[in-house]
Design a binder for these strands. Sequence first.
DNA 1: GTCTATAAATCGATAGAC
DNA 2: GTCTATCGATTTATAGAC
Lengths: 188, 188
Amino acid sequence: MPNDTKTALLDSAERAARTLGFNGFSYSDLAEDVGIRKASIHHHFPSKAALSIALMERYYQSLESACAKIDLEHDTGSTRLAALINTYYGALDDGQSLCLCVSFSTSTESLPSEVIDQMSRFRSMMLNWLSAVFLLGKEDGTIENVADPALEASATLPMIEGAQLAARTEKNPQLFDSAMKLLLSRLH
Amino acid sequence: MPNDTKTALLDSAERAARTLGFNGFSYSDLAEDVGIRKASIHHHFPSKAALSIALMERYYQSLESACAKIDLEHDTGSTRLAALINTYYGALDDGQSLCLCVSFSTSTESLPSEVIDQMSRFRSMMLNWLSAVFLLGKEDGTIENVADPALEASATLPMIEGAQLAARTEKNPQLFDSAMKLLLSRLH
DNA sequence: GTCTATAAATCGATAGAC
DNA sequence: GTCTATCGATTTATAGAC
């Protein structure tokens, strides 16, 4: 690791962004958390816009890896879908945190257009992955009542994201569980 | 009555909050929009926290009325559900705006706890209304495949909210439509 | 009720020493 | 790479005249 400080800044910023939103933390907060002075942050990330791009880039790759890992560890449609839902449940962190994409969605006006594009690509990737999972579940019979896998994906991703947002608002992960119950009841 | 300054401030603040988020507008912006000086706003709303409470209070009543109006104008489960989806589609304003509750969900850290409680009550009201609609649709046969109305409601509200958020992020109302397609295909 | 004027704090960002 | 010091802009909020 040639630059440990940079990684520490990304970690701190991601944690802050996912719990408080992109406008909910400052360079001052990061500095205190990481243990350097705030002016020093500009050496690693010249602007907060540059930091947001780096955060989203890393997050994209992280979720892409997570989906690939799910594919390796599970070989049915239902178990893969359940694993993804579990990933989002974990990201909730007991009702305090959001997926970075959902969190950034709430501050679009403060983000550079490049990040908006990154978020669009992120959601496309997730939709493609979900479509493949629903298709597999339809073919292997582990997901009930799948007519159109792409339509299922288009409905499922916003539901997961919306449920996460609602659960975080009330700091109650139970809200996420209730929202997932109907979908989970279709898995075998 | 529409020339009332307090109402004009609420209108301006609601528009700004739903497009830019609660932290996306300032008293300075409101002042310019309404045509008074920013210090004068404090006479109507002593703090931004007080303004947020008034906004959410008005929004709760507005949606409660909208649901009651839907009940009056439509008498089947499917037409009532379609009318609510249409209401949220309209609130999207071509991909630029959000339901106030979703918008506020994205700035929870900046809001007084009273507003968090108001949002909780708002979502409870919507869940109750949706449950009743799914129950009616199950009984009158206009919504396909309803096993548990409360579970359907718990999944549907976050889906609508999440779809609105995604569509606003990419400024593309088509994303909202795609997310609703599966649910709409169950209506008769 | 609205105004001018200003306080007090915080923000992202820059310059330049070491 | 990190530091001190500071800038300029913006924020919510207050005091007091009219």
